[in-house]
């Protein structure tokens, strides 16, 4: 790897520009107890931080492991340098999704369409059997749902991929 030719030294600014990342001293605390570090390939938060620091754009762009994170935030609790590794993972995902439409999670299409990832409100009979009233969900309120969609359409990733949203 040649950082002069292969790295974008300003990558961290594009990805995680809070100033927290730089404090990382590669101690490995984040990875030693991370659930997704048991995966194959493992999620190695420490290595992701390193890639961002070096600016290894290409390698990071191809890296699927940020999406294996379980969001438990243990790394954030344990990190002695307060790098906030989970936030960094979210930022890496955002950067990938912003630059690669195949990274756009299908769940946001569902949310755009009905307000939720799940089909909330379709289990009418089960709920009735349990003595539950119907929920005041947005799916059943076209006016509110339209406003919600309009709002989302102003946000960057949805705007850039409006075709996915029937727009």
């Amino acid at each position: 790897m040649n950082p002069q030719t292969e790295a974008n030294k300003d990558l961290w600014k594009a990805i995680y520009n809070t100033g927290d990342l730089q404090h990382c001293f590669n101690c490995s605390t984040c990875i030693s107890g991370c659930p997704a570090s048991f995966g194959d390939p493992p999620l190695l938060v420490r290595n992701l931080a390193r890639k961002v620091m070096y600016g290894l754009e290409e390698a990071l762009f191809e890296d699927d492991t940020p999406w294996a994170c379980v969001s438990c935030s243990r790394c954030e609790e344990m990190c002695p340098m307060d790098v906030k590794p989970f936030e960094m993972i979210l930022h890496i995902r955002q950067w990938q999704a912003s630059n690669d439409e195949t990274r756009v999670p299908p769940s946001i299409v569902e949310i755009y369409k009905r307000g939720y990832t799940q089909a909330v409100g379709t289990n009418v009979e089960t709920r009735q059997a349990l003595g539950l009233d119907p929920l005041p969900i947005i799916t059943n309120n076209p006016e509110q749902l339209a406003m919600f969609r309009e709002m989302l359409m102003k946000t960057p990733v949805i705007a850039a991929n409006d075709y996915m949203f029937g727009g």
């Binding site: 999406w67 969001s71 979210l90 995902r93 955002q94 999704a97 912003s98 756009v104 999670p105 769940s107 946001i108 949310i111 307000g115 939720y116 990832t117 005041p136 969900i137 947005i138 309120n141 509110q144 919600f148 989302l152 102003k154 946000t155 960057p156 990733v157 949805i158």
Partner: peptide, 20 residues
Amino acid sequence: ADNYVCCPAFGSFPSTDEDS
């Protein structure tokens, strides 16, 4: 919470952009 929407789940908007 009437007309609430997805929290949003970490795998959804938090993984695409901060605005959404």
